[in-house]
């Protein structure tokens, strides 16, 4: 177990290095941040001085080495544009992002799991057809369209909820629903498929033929096993939410990491882009690791090797 953990951690570190290097190189390949930062009519000498001031006149590898060295001590550098520490900027946005990601995630599980199970049990009935069709449509509709429509109906027309912004629970409702609807559509289909597969498996049939009551079959065998692929998928969904629900955050003016990232990319704010990408990769790696550990809890047959 501990050997497995050590191996996974080593891999995680390697992956983070790969990600940081790729980001760094791509970010520096093209585009001059100074051209974007300085006003259109700034004098050339001032631009050169700014370039020196930001350390952009150094060779690429020197800049990267310096970045990694500082990153190891938790210092991700300073944002070119905002002038403040990158770690601070990301940390500032983290609560809003986690709040939204968590709310969206929980909501989508609350929709997807019961619905998926029911539909799987009522296979080939009208219910199955209706829910599957709805899930299909939900999966096919562009997310921002859903978000804008929810605002038009619930915030402007009915004035039940705030249009956008960050505050109490009421502000969380619409963005969380926007996120949850898309992710729930995917998960519902997955739960249904997974349930159907397990229901058809030999050991479930054996259990039934032995005369166990239907509910016991369901709970003991089916559910647990059916959840394994769902956990993987849900982990990925959650990681994607934490790394930034870019469009939802933009529409609802939600001050999260996603909007921070998008703005940073457009402003060519290299240190901030690097910081956000590294953070997101870190979140991905961490969540995947947790998912692996969850496997052990759910399915004792999974051997960690």
């Amino acid at each position: 177990m501990s050997r497995y953990l050590a191996k996974r951690l080593f891999m995680a570190v390697l992956v983070l290095f790969g990600v940081s290097f790729a980001t760094f190189i791509v970010g520096h390949l093209t585009g001059d941040p100074v051209a974007l930062m300085a006003p259109e009519n700034a004098p050339q000498e001032a631009k050169d001085e700014l370039r020196r001031h930001l350390g952009l006149d150094q060779p690429l590898l020197t800049q990267y080495a310096r970045f990694v060295g500082r990153a190891l001590t938790g210092d991700l550098g300073h944002s070119f544009v905002q002038g403040t520490s990158v770690a601070g900027l990301v940390a500032e946005r983290l609560p809003a992002t986690l709040q939204l990601a968590f709310a969206g995630f929980v909501l989508s599980l609350l929709i997807a799991i019961p619905l998926g199970i029911i539909v799987a049990l009522k296979r080939n009935t009208v219910w199955d057809f209706v829910v599957t069709a709805l899930a299909m449509v939900g999966q096919s509709a562009p997310g921002f369209w859903i978000g804008l429509m929810l605002i038009a109906v619930f915030a402007v027309e009915l004035r039940l909820l705030p249009v956008s912004g960050y505050g109490g629970f009421a502000y969380l409702v619409l963005p969380a629903i926007t996120l949850a609807l898309q992710s729930a559509a995917r998960l519902t289909r997955l739960v249904r498929a997974s349930m159907l597969e397990v229901l058809g498996a030999d050991y479930v049939r054996t259990a039934r033929s032995k005369g166990l009551r239907e509910r016991a079959v369901l709970v003991v065998h089916t559910l647990r096993n059916a959840m394994i692929p769902v956990v993987t998928m849900a982990g990925l969904e959650f990681a994607e939410l934490v790394s930034g629900a870019f469009i939802t955050e933009t529409i609802f003016a939600w001050p999260g990491v996603g909007r921070l990232a998008v703005t940073a990319v457009y402003q060519r704010d290299f240190p901030l882009v690097q910081g956000v990408v590294l953070f997101a990769a870190f979140a991905f790696v961490l969540i995947n690791l947790l998912v692996d550990l969850l496997y052990v809890a759910i399915d004792p047959r999974v051997k960690l090797a």
């Binding site: 790729a22 970010g27 790394s243 870019f246 990232a261 990319v265 990408v277 991905f284």
Partner: peptide, 18 residues
């Protein structure tokens, strides 16, 4: 593994904006 731990949307915006 590296690709899987790289948040896709961010990657796409990053590459395309650059």
């Amino acid at each position: 593994d590296v690709q899987l731990s790289f948040p896709f949307t961010l990657l796409a915006i990053f590459l395309l904006a650059t």
